[in-house]
């Protein structure tokens, strides 16, 4: 004869299995915090060293407002991206090992493939726009496409990611409407929000 404890155990097992097999829960909160710090550092470098702060969609020809060196800017952007992704993979790998799971399992695969389409579309669009000299659109559009990717990814991981995506999209649209605030919106979206999100995940699920 099974006891009440056994039944409760059965239900707990069912719930945990449903959650573990449908959601990727090894996403590390610290990865968010680190990504936010990298983003703020990158903006600081772009702004002070490279003089990047587009006031309009394109740069004027006036010598007072020279266009920044695009190759350096791209190197900085891609370097920051790789650093953030690398940190996220490393920290999530550690978290999933602790949970006794593989990082690259059916849930993480699903989450990554969902994100890839909007991210690659956005990335290529931004590169094309940059080649036309439409520098001011880069920051707001990266927020919008990143937000779309997060919003879909939220179906396969913590639902807070959905919220994060929604806020990123909103910030992107504000930045698109007011191009001179584009860089500030970007710093809030990729910097501050990542840090806030990371701390939230850490305290809510990891402590």
């Amino acid at each position: 004869m099974k006891t009440k404890q056994d039944y409760i155990g059965d239900i707990a097992e069912i719930r945990s299995m449903m959650e573990r097999t449908s959601k990727f829960l090894s996403l590390s909160g610290w990865a968010g915090v680190m990504a936010g710090i990298y983003a703020i550092a990158a903006v600081y470098l772009a702004y002070t060293v490279l003089g990047f702060n587009p006031g309009g969609i394109t740069y004027g020809t006036a010598p007072a407002n020279p266009a920044p060196a695009l190759p350096q800017l791209l190197t900085l952007a891609i370097g920051t991206l790789l650093l953030a992704v690398g940190t996220a993979v490393f920290l999530s790998h550690r978290k999933s090992s602790k949970r006794g799971e593989n990082l690259w399992n059916s849930t993480s695969r699903r989450m990554v493939t969902t994100m890839i389409i909007p991210l690659v579309t956005g990335g290529v669009s931004i590169l094309i726009l940059l080649s036309y000299g439409l520098v001011g659109l880069a920051a707001p559009l990266s927020l919008i496409f990143y937000g779309l990717a997060l919003y879909s990814a939220g179906n396969f991981t913590y639902s807070a990611v959905k919220w994060l995506g929604g806020i990123e999209i909103t910030l992107g649209l504000i930045g698109l409407g007011f191009i001179s605030y584009g860089l500030i919106c970007w710093t809030i979206g990729f910097g501050l929000l990542h840090i806030v999100y990371g701390i939230y995940i850490y305290y809510r699920f990891e402590k």
Binding site: E13, R15, M17, M18, R20, T21, S22, N102, N105, S106
Partner: peptide, 18 residues
Amino acid sequence: SALAVNDTLDFNALKEFL
């Protein structure tokens, strides 16, 4: 439980989860 919330899962995925 795993198959109730996933369209399909393969043998290895099930093995890992369980």
